[in-house]
Computed example of a mutant assay.
Amino acid sequence: MPYRHAWMFIVALIVATVFAFQRSYFTVLSTASPGFHAHGITASLWMLLLLVQSWTPQRGLIAVHRTLGLATFVAIPLFAAGAMGVIHSMAAGTLGGNPFYALWGARLAFIDAVAFGALLYAAGMALRHRHDVRLHAGYMLSTALPLVSPVLGRVLAQTVPGFVVRGPQDFPIFGWSAQCANLCAGIVALWLWRRDPRAGRPWAVAAAVIAVQIVGFETLAKSPSWIAAFLTTAGLPLTWLMLFGLMAGSVAVALGWTCPARRDNRSAILA
């Protein structure tokens, strides 16, 4: 089976997530917005599903892998809905005078919006190539890369000298952490692509997406038109945005499942 140690990366990502968002989310659960709760819960569920799904094939538990794989049809739409929730919360925080989001809300939302589309594409392609072990696993695992940037960026901002944000006076330097995290994720994607170019298509796509995030963070995400569109989301009902995410996620997994690629019997894993 490919990516034999991928489950270890997912475990590390989960631990890093708890550390990264301890101060901004986990210790202030009672005051967090509904949008942040939706994102936190659905992203956590998706990471746990990725962990189990990357571990079971390595232990020969193919039947369990197939059964739990059906949860993708629920988990991806929910994750997409949660992604819309966090964008709405950042926009509301920006309009509400939150000093961090006043600086970075629109630019972080750009990264999240690009990641939203990339994750749905990768999930759909993973289902489309469900009969090809390497492509299926690559596309599915690549959905974790959009989570690296927000997690690693906050880890850097809490631990690495020169990047540490101790208070509002340090908010302007957070962008360096975000971009370094994007760069690290991009390097990982390129490395995974180069080690297996023939089956590395998922990682080539992920690397291209990260490149768009890096460049867009410094250009389009600072444009008046993007900022205006971002702030507009704060005035929309949260339920509408989450419903849009739910529908987009449902369409992505439905298209992936109903439009399978040609089956390769040498690497079939799912019936």
Rank of each mutant, 00 (worst) to 15 (best):
G85L: 10
V18Y: 03
S54N: 08
L231R: 15
G235H: 13
V28H: 13
M242E: 14
F100H: 07
L135E: 02
Q179Y: 00
R266E: 15
G82A: 13
L103Y: 01
W7S: 11
G153R: 04
C259V: 13
F9H: 02
A83Y: 10
F21T: 00
A43H: 11
L51K: 06
F36R: 13
A228F: 04
D132P: 00
A75N: 09
S177K: 04
V205H: 14
L241Y: 06
I62R: 14
A16K: 02
L61H: 09
M8R: 09
H129G: 05
R107G: 11
A206Q: 14
L270V: 15
H5C: 04
V155W: 01
H131R: 09
A102F: 01
P34Y: 11
A137L: 04
F230D: 03
R66F: 04
M242R: 05
W257Y: 14
A234F: 11
A75G: 01
V205I: 15
V18P: 00
A221P: 07
A122H: 06
P224M: 07
T94I: 00
S54T: 15
H39M: 12
A208S: 15
M90W: 09
T258R: 11
A268W: 08
M140F: 03
P161F: 00
A199F: 07
G235C: 10
M47C: 13
R66C: 12
M140Q: 10
D132E: 12
P224E: 12
N182I: 02
F100Y: 14
S24Q: 10
L13T: 03
L78R: 02
R59P: 07
S149V: 10
V133R: 13
T159E: 07
A185Q: 12
V205G: 06
L61K: 12
L45F: 03
A12C: 09
A75V: 15
I111P: 08
S24E: 13
G167L: 03
R262W: 01
L48R: 03
W55I: 02
Y25S: 01
R154L: 10
L156K: 02
I210S: 07
V64K: 11
L45K: 00
I87A: 14
M242Q: 15
V18T: 02
Q179F: 01
V160W: 01
A20W: 01
V151A: 12
H136C: 11
R128E: 06
S54D: 08
T72Y: 03
L48K: 09
A181M: 06
V251K: 06
L103D: 07
V165D: 06
G93H: 07
L135N: 00
M247C: 15
A211Q: 08
V114C: 10
A12I: 02
T42Q: 11
R194Q: 14
G235M: 09
A91Y: 04
G138M: 05
S89N: 12
R154P: 05
W55V: 07
L108I: 09
G117Y: 02
F116N: 13
I187T: 07
Q53S: 05
S223N: 07
T42L: 10
L255R: 05
L127W: 00
F217I: 04
P34C: 12
T258K: 10
A118Y: 05
V74I: 15
A123Q: 01
L192C: 08
G97H: 06
V209L: 04
A106K: 00
P237D: 10
P34G: 12
M84R: 08
V155H: 05
P260H: 05
G69F: 00
S149W: 04
A43C: 13
G97V: 05
D132C: 03
L243I: 08
T72E: 03
P57H: 10
T67Y: 13
